[in-house]
């Protein structure tokens, strides 16, 4: 693991890292990957063999939506920047 790889991951994760941290992370992530590498010894088993904790989708009927705007103020109060009833962000295009 080298700094350019960490930079590529940071770009994907939208996260600023200092030069110093990129170098440290390269070492740390390598050490962690070396540890979890043992998972490669796992023998393939057919999918769904375990019935210990069966996974299933949970569905429900559509309910009545709440009244429009009922939570607008509460939610907007939490945003760092707002413009009227909108969350304000920098231009995208």
């Amino acid at each position: 693991m080298h700094t350019p790889e960490i930079e590529a991951l940071a770009e994907l994760a939208r996260i600023y890292l200092s030069e110093e941290e990129k170098a440290t992370l390269a070492k740390e992530v390598e050490a962690i990957l070396a540890y979890v590498e043992q998972i490669q010894k796992v023998k393939e088993v057919s999918r769904g063999e375990s019935d210990f904790s069966p996974l299933r989708n949970v569905m429900r009927e559509d309910g009545k939506p709440h009244e429009s705007g009922a939570y607008t103020e509460t939610l907007l109060e939490a945003s760092p920047k707002r413009h009227g009833n909108y969350v304000k962000v920098k231009k995208i295009l």
């Binding site: 998972i39 490669q40 796992v42 088993v45 063999e49 375990s50 019935d51 210990f52 904790s53």
Partner: peptide
């Protein structure tokens, strides 16, 4: 995917 596989194997072991 490997970790998910391991998780299912562990489930069977515990069962």
């Amino acid at each position: 995917n490997k970790a998910g596989e391991m998780r299912r194997i562990l489930g069977s072991d515990f069962a």
